[in-house]
Design a protein around this nucleic acid. Structure first.
Lengths: 189, 189
DNA sequence: TCACTATACGGAGGTAGCCTCCGTTTAGCA
DNA sequence: TGCTAAACGGAGGCTACCTCCGTATAGTGA
Protein backbone atom coordinates (compact mmCIF):
# COMPACT_ATOMS: atom_id res chain seq x y z
CA UNK A 1 0.00 0.00 0.00
CA UNK A 2 1.41 3.40 -0.91
CA UNK A 3 1.49 6.59 1.03
CA UNK A 4 -1.24 8.08 -1.17
CA UNK A 5 -3.53 5.12 -0.76
CA UNK A 6 -3.14 5.55 2.97
CA UNK A 7 -4.21 9.18 3.07
CA UNK A 8 -7.05 8.28 0.73
CA UNK A 9 -8.12 5.82 3.39
CA UNK A 10 -8.39 8.61 5.91
CA UNK A 11 -10.35 10.68 3.42
CA UNK A 12 -12.87 7.90 3.09
CA UNK A 13 -13.62 8.18 6.77
CA UNK A 14 -14.31 11.89 6.68
CA UNK A 15 -18.05 12.50 6.86
CA UNK A 16 -19.96 13.92 3.89
CA UNK A 17 -21.94 16.65 5.55
CA UNK A 18 -20.14 19.98 5.94
CA UNK A 19 -20.69 20.41 9.67
CA UNK A 20 -19.68 16.86 10.40
CA UNK A 21 -16.56 17.26 8.31
CA UNK A 22 -15.56 20.42 10.16
CA UNK A 23 -15.92 18.62 13.47
CA UNK A 24 -13.96 15.62 12.23
CA UNK A 25 -11.05 17.81 11.19
CA UNK A 26 -11.15 19.83 14.39
CA UNK A 27 -11.04 16.61 16.41
CA UNK A 28 -8.04 15.23 14.56
CA UNK A 29 -6.19 18.48 15.02
CA UNK A 30 -7.03 18.70 18.72
CA UNK A 31 -6.02 15.08 19.15
CA UNK A 32 -2.68 15.64 17.45
CA UNK A 33 -1.90 18.48 19.84
CA UNK A 34 -3.12 16.60 22.87
CA UNK A 35 -1.22 13.42 22.05
CA UNK A 36 1.95 15.40 21.47
CA UNK A 37 1.52 17.25 24.76
CA UNK A 38 0.22 14.53 27.06
CA UNK A 39 0.95 11.29 25.25
CA UNK A 40 -1.57 8.82 23.90
CA UNK A 41 -3.37 8.73 27.24
CA UNK A 42 -4.60 12.29 26.86
CA UNK A 43 -8.16 12.80 28.02
CA UNK A 44 -10.72 12.31 25.27
CA UNK A 45 -13.16 14.67 26.94
CA UNK A 46 -10.46 17.28 26.91
CA UNK A 47 -9.84 16.70 23.22
CA UNK A 48 -13.55 17.13 22.53
CA UNK A 49 -13.57 20.33 24.56
CA UNK A 50 -10.55 21.72 22.73
CA UNK A 51 -12.14 20.86 19.41
CA UNK A 52 -15.27 22.66 20.53
CA UNK A 53 -17.57 19.66 20.11
CA UNK A 54 -19.51 17.44 22.44
CA UNK A 55 -18.09 14.17 23.68
CA UNK A 56 -20.83 12.37 21.77
CA UNK A 57 -19.50 13.76 18.51
CA UNK A 58 -16.03 12.54 19.28
CA UNK A 59 -17.30 9.03 19.90
CA UNK A 60 -19.47 9.02 16.78
CA UNK A 61 -16.47 9.81 14.62
CA UNK A 62 -13.99 7.72 16.56
CA UNK A 63 -15.69 4.86 18.41
CA UNK A 64 -12.47 3.89 20.19
CA UNK A 65 -9.36 5.69 21.31
CA UNK A 66 -7.43 3.66 18.78
CA UNK A 67 -9.54 5.01 15.95
CA UNK A 68 -8.45 8.50 16.89
CA UNK A 69 -4.85 7.42 17.29
CA UNK A 70 -5.02 5.92 13.81
CA UNK A 71 -6.13 9.17 12.27
CA UNK A 72 -3.29 11.11 13.86
CA UNK A 73 -0.83 8.35 13.12
CA UNK A 74 -1.59 8.52 9.42
CA UNK A 75 -0.24 12.03 9.12
CA UNK A 76 2.97 11.20 10.94
CA UNK A 77 3.60 8.13 8.83
CA UNK A 78 3.41 10.19 5.69
CA UNK A 79 6.28 12.37 6.96
CA UNK A 80 8.55 9.46 7.80
CA UNK A 81 7.91 7.71 4.51
CA UNK A 82 8.52 10.87 2.50
CA UNK A 83 11.91 11.35 4.13
CA UNK A 84 13.14 8.08 2.68
CA UNK A 85 13.09 9.69 -0.76
CA UNK A 86 16.10 11.76 -1.70
CA UNK A 87 18.66 9.92 0.38
CA UNK A 88 20.10 8.05 -2.60
CA UNK A 89 23.06 10.34 -2.99
CA UNK A 90 24.46 9.34 0.38
CA UNK A 91 26.60 6.34 1.15
CA UNK A 92 24.46 3.20 1.63
CA UNK A 93 24.95 2.84 5.37
CA UNK A 94 24.64 6.55 6.01
CA UNK A 95 21.42 6.80 4.00
CA UNK A 96 19.83 4.04 6.05
CA UNK A 97 21.17 5.46 9.30
CA UNK A 98 19.85 8.92 8.46
CA UNK A 99 16.39 7.54 7.84
CA UNK A 100 16.40 5.56 11.07
CA UNK A 101 17.64 8.58 13.02
CA UNK A 102 14.88 10.63 11.55
CA UNK A 103 12.41 7.98 12.55
CA UNK A 104 13.78 7.99 16.09
CA UNK A 105 13.54 11.78 16.39
CA UNK A 106 10.01 11.66 15.18
CA UNK A 107 9.04 8.80 17.44
CA UNK A 108 10.60 10.36 20.51
CA UNK A 109 8.19 13.28 20.38
CA UNK A 110 5.24 11.74 18.58
CA UNK A 111 4.92 8.72 20.80
CA UNK A 112 1.93 7.70 18.74
CA UNK A 113 4.33 6.21 16.24
CA UNK A 114 5.52 3.74 18.84
CA UNK A 115 2.18 2.58 20.17
CA UNK A 116 1.10 1.84 16.63
CA UNK A 117 3.57 -0.95 16.29
CA UNK A 118 1.59 -3.47 18.22
CA UNK A 119 -1.97 -2.85 17.24
CA UNK A 120 -4.33 -5.32 15.65
CA UNK A 121 -5.98 -2.56 13.67
CA UNK A 122 -5.68 -3.26 9.96
CA UNK A 123 -5.19 0.42 9.27
CA UNK A 124 -2.23 0.61 11.61
CA UNK A 125 -0.82 -2.54 10.13
CA UNK A 126 -0.99 -0.84 6.76
CA UNK A 127 0.79 2.18 8.20
CA UNK A 128 3.50 -0.08 9.49
CA UNK A 129 3.69 -1.57 6.04
CA UNK A 130 4.21 1.85 4.52
CA UNK A 131 6.95 2.72 7.00
CA UNK A 132 8.71 -0.58 6.39
CA UNK A 133 8.31 -0.32 2.64
CA UNK A 134 9.86 3.13 2.63
CA UNK A 135 12.87 2.07 4.67
CA UNK A 136 13.45 -1.34 3.19
CA UNK A 137 15.20 -0.21 -0.02
CA UNK A 138 17.69 1.72 2.08
CA UNK A 139 18.42 -1.35 4.18
CA UNK A 140 18.72 -3.62 1.16
CA UNK A 141 21.07 -1.23 -0.54
CA UNK A 142 23.30 -1.10 2.53
CA UNK A 143 23.23 -4.88 2.76
CA UNK A 144 24.07 -5.25 -0.94
CA UNK A 145 27.05 -2.96 -0.39
CA UNK A 146 28.16 -5.26 2.40
CA UNK A 147 27.85 -2.53 4.99
CA UNK A 148 24.99 -4.04 6.98
CA UNK A 149 24.77 -7.58 8.31
CA UNK A 150 22.62 -9.68 6.03
CA UNK A 151 20.57 -11.33 8.78
CA UNK A 152 18.48 -8.35 9.85
CA UNK A 153 15.14 -7.35 8.40
CA UNK A 154 13.73 -3.85 8.23
CA UNK A 155 11.31 -4.85 10.96
CA UNK A 156 14.25 -5.62 13.25
CA UNK A 157 16.01 -2.36 12.47
CA UNK A 158 12.95 -0.21 13.03
CA UNK A 159 12.06 -1.86 16.30
CA UNK A 160 15.62 -1.63 17.51
CA UNK A 161 15.63 2.10 16.95
CA UNK A 162 12.11 2.66 18.16
CA UNK A 163 12.95 0.96 21.42
CA UNK A 164 15.74 3.39 22.12
CA UNK A 165 13.56 6.25 20.95
CA UNK A 166 10.97 5.32 23.54
CA UNK A 167 13.39 5.59 26.44
CA UNK A 168 13.63 8.89 28.22
CA UNK A 169 17.10 10.29 28.63
CA UNK A 170 18.28 12.90 31.12
CA UNK A 171 19.91 14.82 28.29
CA UNK A 172 19.30 14.54 24.53
CA UNK A 173 22.95 14.04 23.66
CA UNK A 174 22.85 10.67 25.35
CA UNK A 175 19.96 9.50 23.21
CA UNK A 176 21.93 10.32 20.07
CA UNK A 177 24.96 8.49 21.39
CA UNK A 178 22.97 5.40 22.30
CA UNK A 179 21.19 5.39 18.96
CA UNK A 180 24.55 5.49 17.24
CA UNK A 181 25.63 2.47 19.27
CA UNK A 182 22.46 0.67 18.22
CA UNK A 183 23.01 1.57 14.56
CA UNK A 184 26.55 0.31 14.86
CA UNK A 185 25.10 -3.04 15.82
CA UNK A 186 23.59 -3.24 12.36
CA UNK A 187 26.98 -3.03 10.65
CA UNK A 188 28.42 -6.04 8.92
CA UNK A 189 31.57 -7.37 10.55
CA UNK B 1 24.67 2.31 48.19
CA UNK B 2 24.68 -1.47 48.43
CA UNK B 3 21.95 -3.95 47.84
CA UNK B 4 21.64 -4.59 51.58
CA UNK B 5 21.34 -0.93 52.42
CA UNK B 6 18.55 -0.73 49.90
CA UNK B 7 16.44 -3.48 51.42
CA UNK B 8 17.14 -1.98 54.83
CA UNK B 9 15.57 1.18 53.45
CA UNK B 10 12.38 -0.69 52.68
CA UNK B 11 12.40 -2.24 56.13
CA UNK B 12 12.48 1.22 57.66
CA UNK B 13 9.20 1.98 55.96
CA UNK B 14 7.41 -1.04 57.33
CA UNK B 15 5.10 -0.03 60.17
CA UNK B 16 5.78 -1.12 63.73
CA UNK B 17 2.40 -2.44 64.74
CA UNK B 18 1.69 -6.06 63.84
CA UNK B 19 -1.60 -5.49 62.01
CA UNK B 20 -0.18 -2.59 60.05
CA UNK B 21 2.85 -4.62 59.10
CA UNK B 22 0.69 -7.48 57.84
CA UNK B 23 -1.26 -5.09 55.67
CA UNK B 24 1.88 -3.44 54.36
CA UNK B 25 3.30 -6.77 53.27
CA UNK B 26 0.03 -7.91 51.75
CA UNK B 27 -0.16 -4.69 49.74
CA UNK B 28 3.35 -5.04 48.36
CA UNK B 29 2.66 -8.60 47.35
CA UNK B 30 -0.66 -7.74 45.71
CA UNK B 31 0.98 -4.82 43.94
CA UNK B 32 3.77 -7.01 42.59
CA UNK B 33 1.21 -9.39 41.10
CA UNK B 34 -0.95 -6.61 39.75
CA UNK B 35 1.94 -4.70 38.18
CA UNK B 36 3.21 -7.87 36.54
CA UNK B 37 -0.24 -8.70 35.19
CA UNK B 38 -1.55 -5.28 34.20
CA UNK B 39 1.50 -3.02 34.10
CA UNK B 40 2.21 -0.07 36.35
CA UNK B 41 -1.21 1.39 35.61
CA UNK B 42 -2.99 -1.37 37.49
CA UNK B 43 -5.92 -0.17 39.55
CA UNK B 44 -4.96 0.76 43.09
CA UNK B 45 -8.44 -0.02 44.35
CA UNK B 46 -8.06 -3.45 42.87
CA UNK B 47 -4.70 -3.92 44.60
CA UNK B 48 -6.28 -2.94 47.90
CA UNK B 49 -9.12 -5.39 47.31
CA UNK B 50 -6.71 -8.21 46.46
CA UNK B 51 -4.69 -7.45 49.56
CA UNK B 52 -7.89 -7.58 51.59
CA UNK B 53 -7.56 -4.05 52.97
CA UNK B 54 -9.43 -0.81 52.51
CA UNK B 55 -8.30 1.77 50.00
CA UNK B 56 -7.56 4.12 52.89
CA UNK B 57 -4.98 1.70 54.23
CA UNK B 58 -3.27 1.53 50.89
CA UNK B 59 -2.98 5.30 50.74
CA UNK B 60 -1.75 5.58 54.32
CA UNK B 61 1.12 3.22 53.58
CA UNK B 62 1.78 4.48 50.07
CA UNK B 63 0.65 8.07 49.62
CA UNK B 64 1.37 7.99 45.88
CA UNK B 65 1.40 5.34 43.19
CA UNK B 66 5.14 5.87 42.91
CA UNK B 67 5.65 4.96 46.54
CA UNK B 68 4.09 1.59 45.84
CA UNK B 69 6.08 1.17 42.64
CA UNK B 70 9.23 1.88 44.62
CA UNK B 71 8.51 -0.87 47.10
CA UNK B 72 7.98 -3.45 44.36
CA UNK B 73 10.92 -2.14 42.40
CA UNK B 74 13.25 -2.72 45.31
CA UNK B 75 12.74 -6.46 45.22
CA UNK B 76 13.34 -6.69 41.49
CA UNK B 77 16.52 -4.66 41.70
CA UNK B 78 17.94 -7.04 44.23
CA UNK B 79 17.51 -9.90 41.74
CA UNK B 80 19.23 -8.11 38.89
CA UNK B 81 22.13 -6.99 41.04
CA UNK B 82 22.63 -10.45 42.50
CA UNK B 83 22.90 -11.97 39.06
CA UNK B 84 25.99 -9.89 38.33
CA UNK B 85 27.87 -12.02 40.87
CA UNK B 86 29.23 -15.29 39.63
CA UNK B 87 29.73 -14.31 36.01
CA UNK B 88 33.48 -13.88 36.42
CA UNK B 89 34.32 -17.24 34.91
CA UNK B 90 32.91 -16.25 31.53
CA UNK B 91 34.67 -14.34 28.80
CA UNK B 92 34.53 -10.58 29.44
CA UNK B 93 32.11 -9.70 26.65
CA UNK B 94 29.92 -12.71 27.28
CA UNK B 95 29.70 -11.99 31.00
CA UNK B 96 28.52 -8.45 30.33
CA UNK B 97 26.13 -9.59 27.62
CA UNK B 98 24.64 -12.26 29.85
CA UNK B 99 23.96 -9.72 32.56
CA UNK B 100 22.36 -7.31 30.11
CA UNK B 101 20.23 -10.08 28.60
CA UNK B 102 19.09 -11.04 32.03
CA UNK B 103 18.20 -7.46 32.70
CA UNK B 104 16.22 -7.31 29.47
CA UNK B 105 14.29 -10.49 30.26
CA UNK B 106 13.48 -9.15 33.64
CA UNK B 107 12.48 -5.76 32.36
CA UNK B 108 10.28 -7.16 29.61
CA UNK B 109 7.95 -8.76 32.13
CA UNK B 110 8.47 -6.53 35.15
CA UNK B 111 7.89 -3.26 33.36
CA UNK B 112 8.34 -1.54 36.70
CA UNK B 113 12.07 -1.75 36.13
CA UNK B 114 11.73 0.48 33.08
CA UNK B 115 9.52 3.17 34.53
CA UNK B 116 11.94 3.52 37.41
CA UNK B 117 14.64 4.90 35.18
CA UNK B 118 13.20 8.35 34.93
CA UNK B 119 11.88 9.09 38.35
CA UNK B 120 12.87 11.94 40.60
CA UNK B 121 12.39 9.78 43.65
CA UNK B 122 15.62 9.52 45.58
CA UNK B 123 14.89 5.91 46.42
CA UNK B 124 14.55 4.99 42.77
CA UNK B 125 17.69 6.91 41.97
CA UNK B 126 19.45 4.79 44.55
CA UNK B 127 18.02 1.67 42.95
CA UNK B 128 19.36 2.78 39.63
CA UNK B 129 22.69 3.33 41.31
CA UNK B 130 22.66 -0.24 42.60
CA UNK B 131 21.83 -1.64 39.16
CA UNK B 132 24.55 0.40 37.53
CA UNK B 133 27.08 -0.44 40.22
CA UNK B 134 26.42 -4.14 39.79
CA UNK B 135 26.84 -4.06 36.03
CA UNK B 136 29.69 -1.61 35.79
CA UNK B 137 32.52 -4.00 36.72
CA UNK B 138 31.39 -6.32 33.93
CA UNK B 139 31.46 -3.48 31.42
CA UNK B 140 34.85 -2.23 32.60
CA UNK B 141 36.33 -5.70 32.40
CA UNK B 142 35.09 -6.12 28.84
CA UNK B 143 36.46 -2.70 27.95
CA UNK B 144 39.81 -3.49 29.56
CA UNK B 145 39.93 -6.65 27.46
CA UNK B 146 39.38 -4.51 24.36
CA UNK B 147 36.10 -6.25 23.57
CA UNK B 148 33.81 -3.29 24.16
CA UNK B 149 34.17 0.20 22.74
CA UNK B 150 35.70 2.49 25.34
CA UNK B 151 33.28 5.37 24.85
CA UNK B 152 30.16 3.84 26.37
CA UNK B 153 29.15 4.10 30.00
CA UNK B 154 27.11 1.54 31.91
CA UNK B 155 24.22 3.99 31.82
CA UNK B 156 24.30 3.92 28.01
CA UNK B 157 24.43 0.15 27.86
CA UNK B 158 21.54 -0.35 30.26
CA UNK B 159 19.33 2.17 28.56
CA UNK B 160 20.11 0.72 25.16
CA UNK B 161 18.98 -2.70 26.29
CA UNK B 162 16.05 -1.45 28.31
CA UNK B 163 14.73 0.38 25.27
CA UNK B 164 14.58 -2.80 23.27
CA UNK B 165 13.15 -4.66 26.24
CA UNK B 166 10.29 -2.19 26.38
CA UNK B 167 9.22 -2.84 22.80
CA UNK B 168 6.61 -5.48 22.22
CA UNK B 169 7.45 -8.10 19.64
CA UNK B 170 5.09 -10.37 17.74
CA UNK B 171 7.22 -13.36 18.69
CA UNK B 172 9.85 -13.61 21.44
CA UNK B 173 12.58 -14.89 19.14
CA UNK B 174 12.68 -11.54 17.42
CA UNK B 175 13.33 -9.73 20.68
CA UNK B 176 16.34 -11.93 21.35
CA UNK B 177 17.66 -11.31 17.85
CA UNK B 178 17.27 -7.57 18.12
CA UNK B 179 18.88 -7.51 21.54
CA UNK B 180 21.83 -9.38 20.11
CA UNK B 181 22.13 -6.73 17.42
CA UNK B 182 22.08 -4.04 20.07
CA UNK B 183 24.71 -5.84 22.13
CA UNK B 184 26.82 -6.14 19.01
CA UNK B 185 26.78 -2.37 18.79
CA UNK B 186 28.70 -2.28 22.04
CA UNK B 187 31.62 -4.27 20.60
CA UNK B 188 34.91 -2.58 19.94
CA UNK B 189 35.87 -2.39 16.27
C1' DT C 1 -38.18 29.76 -0.92
C1' DC C 2 -39.88 26.33 1.95
C1' DA C 3 -40.61 22.01 4.06
C1' DC C 4 -38.94 17.47 4.89
C1' DT C 5 -35.89 14.00 6.53
C1' DA C 6 -31.56 11.77 6.93
C1' DT C 7 -27.75 13.00 9.35
C1' DA C 8 -25.36 14.85 13.04
C1' DC C 9 -25.17 17.12 17.57
C1' DG C 10 -24.16 17.07 22.52
C1' DG C 11 -24.94 16.35 27.14
C1' DA C 12 -27.10 13.60 30.84
C1' DG C 13 -26.13 9.62 33.33
C1' DG C 14 -24.11 5.13 34.74
C1' DT C 15 -19.58 3.00 35.78
C1' DA C 16 -15.01 3.03 37.56
C1' DG C 17 -10.73 4.79 39.36
C1' DC C 18 -8.29 8.45 42.08
C1' DC C 19 -7.61 10.38 46.46
C1' DT C 20 -9.08 12.59 51.13
C1' DC C 21 -11.22 12.81 55.34
C1' DC C 22 -12.83 11.25 59.54
C1' DG C 23 -15.68 8.34 62.64
C1' DT C 24 -14.70 3.64 64.33
C1' DT C 25 -11.71 -0.14 65.82
C1' DT C 26 -7.79 -2.31 67.98
C1' DA C 27 -2.84 -3.51 69.30
C1' DG C 28 0.24 -3.00 72.72
C1' DC C 29 1.36 -1.24 77.08
C1' DA C 30 1.11 -0.30 82.05
C1' DT D 1 -8.13 -4.95 82.40
C1' DG D 2 -8.41 -0.34 80.90
C1' DC D 3 -6.35 3.34 78.13
C1' DT D 4 -4.75 5.62 74.12
C1' DA D 5 -1.89 6.17 70.19
C1' DA D 6 -2.05 4.01 66.00
C1' DA D 7 -4.37 2.01 62.35
C1' DC D 8 -8.56 0.82 59.78
C1' DG D 9 -11.70 1.37 55.85
C1' DG D 10 -15.28 3.18 53.30
C1' DA D 11 -18.18 7.20 52.11
C1' DG D 12 -17.94 10.93 49.08
C1' DG D 13 -16.21 14.39 45.78
C1' DC D 14 -13.81 14.52 41.57
C1' DT D 15 -12.70 13.23 36.80
C1' DA D 16 -12.59 10.23 32.85
C1' DC D 17 -14.79 6.67 30.01
C1' DC D 18 -18.51 5.50 27.10
C1' DT D 19 -23.69 5.01 25.66
C1' DC D 20 -28.04 6.54 24.59
C1' DC D 21 -31.44 9.38 22.83
C1' DG D 22 -34.09 13.75 22.47
C1' DT D 23 -32.97 17.93 19.77
C1' DA D 24 -31.10 20.57 15.90
C1' DT D 25 -29.80 21.30 11.14
C1' DA D 26 -27.62 20.57 6.37
C1' DG D 27 -28.88 19.43 2.06
C1' DT D 28 -32.40 18.28 -1.17
C1' DG D 29 -36.35 18.41 -4.11
C1' DA D 30 -40.68 20.64 -5.15
Amino acid sequence: MTNEELTALLDERRPKRADARRNFDALVEAARDAFAADGVDASLEDIARRAGVGIGTLYRNFPTRDALVEAVYLEEVAGVAAYAEGLDDRQPFEAMAAWLRRFADYAATKKVLLTGFNSDSTLLQSCRGVVFASGEPLLKRAQAAGEVRPDVAIDDAVRLVSGVAGVEFPEPGQRDRVIDVALDGLRAR
